[in-house]
């Protein structure tokens, strides 16, 4: 029997889910391997048990916590999809401010009507088996994971920076173009898609293990941005990962 697969969304822009619907030709190949049983963006079936649950979005409220626990109980394999789910993503920027201040800014006088938590990675609430990084996650990356799971092998993990892929493609380094790029300390696997099109890396796939944060801040400031701006850039996608 084909694996029963479900997709769930939490606090996110749902861009990762939409990205999957853009598979076009590959979609039919994918459906040879899996049965999609829950996918709000495309259908509305329900099931009691999932072989693989894909989770998009970060955990930001008590009701999210309850729901993710419920999904975890019904799932054999749970995969975090996209940077919100993997490490809190841009949502986690709110964690840099006192939670009361955040509530007031968003809800004004109604702030006591809405319970809120710091934006958390799915893995800080339940066990996450695998992750697909990126904002949004790339189709390539998602497919690689899916094929790996179908073949019963470990999905790929990425321990090398974006710079590696840039160099292999012989991209002109954006630092040589006067830009400030997070490629040197950002987890690769994205085929350096942003730098390849002249856009500096914003760190959406997360910071590598054991990064040289001080060294990186020095690189950024020595290329013309303030320390404050450098820190902001580093935190954009990684407020939960980097202590500054």
């Amino acid at each position: 029997m084909k694996p029963q697969v479900a997709f769930f969304d939490f606090t996110s822009c749902e861009g990762c889910q939409l990205n999957k619907l853009n598979f076009e030709n590959d979609l039919l190949d994918i459906l040879k391997h899996i049965d999609i049983v829950e996918f709000r963006e495309a259908m509305d079936d329900k099931a009691d048990h999932y072989d693989i649950a894909f989770i998009e979005g970060s955990i930001t409220s008590p009701s999210c916590v309850e729901r993710i626990h419920d999904i975890r109980r019904r799932s054999d394999i749970l995969v975090a999809l996209g940077s919100c789910a993997v490490n809190g993503g841009v949502n986690a920027m709110k964690n840099l401010h006192p939670i009361d201040e955040v509530r007031e800014t968003v809800y004004g006088d109604d702030k006591y009507l809405f319970a809120t938590l710091p934006a958390m990675a799915v893995s800080s609430v339940v066990k996450v088996d695998y992750e697909v990084r990126g904002c949004p996650m790339t189709q390539q990356d998602f497919l690689k994971l899916l094929i790996a799971l179908v073949l019963g092998k470990q999905p790929p993990t990425y321990g090398s920076p974006v710079c590696v892929e840039c160099k292999l493609k012989e991209n002109e380094c954006l630092y040589n173009r006067g830009m400030v790029c997070l490629g040197p300390i950002t987890r690769g696997g994205c085929d350096a898609v942003c730098p390849s099109f002249g856009q500096f890396c914003t760190g959406c796939r997360g910071i590598l293990d054991n990064p040289n944060i001080d060294g990186m801040l020095e690189v950024m400031t020595s290329h013309g941005i303030s320390l404050d701006e450098a820190k902001k850039r580093m935190l954009l996608y990684n407020s939960n990962e980097v202590q500054l």
């Binding site: 710079c163 040289n212 060294g215």
Partner: peptide, 10 residues
């Protein structure tokens, strides 16, 4: 050198 190197491999 290690304190300045960000480990990008360039």
């Amino acid at each position: 050198v290690a304190s300045r190197c960000v480990g990008c491999g360039a």
